[in-house]
């Protein structure tokens, strides 16, 4: 055990020591645009908050409703990015982001059973909006295909992971769509998810206040 730990520490030290050098090579061969697209949304709190809210809502509704987002969300990001790159800079509107956060947070807090079609439309629209917002930082020399690939991969990975973690957290007993006779609203895991919805809606409300104040 101690030996494994020692090897692990040495491997970690080596990883830390060589990380910056490896990154320079990736950028030099222009794959950096892929990573720029993949990590760009995670540098914006609006993206992080809204993606998280969407994933939590979809995950809380169960696998049957949420699985469509695995494909739709990255496609929406690509559609928005293409639109943003074609039309020109589409500045992200803080008030719209705030309203989306409030709506998603309230739906999660209320434990609303959002129909699958509506959930898909909401997810695609949100992804398109955020995709267009991410297009605003495309430079003339950016490889757009690589950037789009990175963004779509990030969207796919993030939404799938958040939904999967939410589903795993809720557990099979909480999936009321399978057994409508069980009232799961009192289940603490469901309550914790709904409390998170309250937090997201509260943050959205303050974002709206900030948008109106500025």
């Amino acid at each position: 055990m101690r030996r494994t730990l020692k090897h692990g520490l040495i491997a970690t030290a080596l990883l830390l020591a060589q990380a910056p050098a490896a990154e320079a090579h990736i950028v030099a061969i222009r794959l950096g645009d892929f990573y720029a697209g993949a990590l760009h949304p995670f540098t914006d709190l609006q993206d992080v908050l809204l993606w998280l809210a969407m994933g939590l809502l979809a995950g809380s509704l169960g696998a049957a409703r949420g699985r469509w987002l695995v494909a739709l969300f990255p496609l929406g990001l690509l559609a928005g990015l293409a639109l943003g790159a074609r039309v020109g800079t589409i500045a992200a509107n803080p008030a719209i982001d705030a309203v989306i956060a409030v709506v998603l947070g309230l739906l999660l807090a209320a434990g609303a059973r959002v129909p699958t079609v509506l959930l898909c439309v909401m997810a695609f629209a949100l992804a398109a909006l955020r995709g267009a917002a991410n297009a605003s930082d495309l430079a003339p020399n950016t490889d757009r295909l690589l950037f789009a690939g990175g963004l779509a991969c990030a969207g796919y990975a993030a939404i799938t992971l958040i939904m999967a973690l939410t589903l795993a957290f809720r557990g099979p007993l909480s999936d009321s769509s399978k057994d409508s006779s069980k009232d799961t609203s009192k289940d603490w895991r469901g309550i914790a998810l709904r409390a998170l919805g309250g937090w997201i809606a509260a943050i959205g409300l303050m974002m709206a206040g900030l948008a109106f104040a500025s």
Partner: peptide, 16 residues
């Protein structure tokens, strides 16, 4: 369970 869900919202209203 109602408190932790609704309190942040009401507080955010005060925040606005």
């Amino acid at each position: 369970w109602v408190l932790p869900i609704t309190f942040p919202l009401v507080m955010a209203f005060g925040g606005v």
